[in-house]
Amino acid sequence: MEIIRVENLNYYYQDGETIRTILKDLTVSFEKGKFYTILGPSGCGKTTFLSLLAALDEPKSGTIYYNDKDIKAIGYEKYRRNMISIIFQSYNLVPYMTAVENVMIPMAITENEIPKNSKEVAYNLLDYIGLTKSKANRVVNKLSGGEQQRVAIARSLASNVDIIFADEPTGNLDQELENEIIGVFKDLAHHHNKCVIMVTHSKEIADMSDVSYQLRKGVLSHNE
């Protein structure tokens, strides 16, 4: 079932006189229950595309629909709050909070239904993602990079949304951890009916996804 549809998306960066086109009349749609990858070399515009999908920026033209509703009409803030989650390349955790506190942040922000025992839920999410309770109680800047990214993934699940965006989340991690995280994303898509869209420059990761697109010269094409 289609959950996100992108129509005729255009985006460019302007540096004084020079205009750098990043996305050109891009049209694509994504469904729940699938793990997508968007493949492309560094600098091709993957992050830019993701920032538009995640409503952190506004397209120059074109429309993004969530369940057939223009996300602009929904309101970017509300869309980010209740419909999507983002996993960043550089984990972006609140450094002075513990892992479990970080996971609980979106629970207080979202308007989606969150179980009353939110702390327990947060521990469970961290456990699901492979973080023990003792580590969950540690302030995050005392965790390793891999552990921090696990916390970021757990946080993305905390607001109970259908769509998860990930911007090269394994870029700073070793092979073993990367595989594990890809496994988690697949599990989320296949067993929890999420729509997971991950951006990567790695062909191997792209090969592990259900659907893989290639971003080239501002347009997406299926990657076989």
Partner: peptide
């Protein structure tokens, strides 16, 4: 800045 950015990206007003 990063901390504030996190809240905003999570949809906090």
């Amino acid at each position: 800045k990063h901390e504030l950015g996190i809240y905003l990206s999570l949809g906090e007003s």
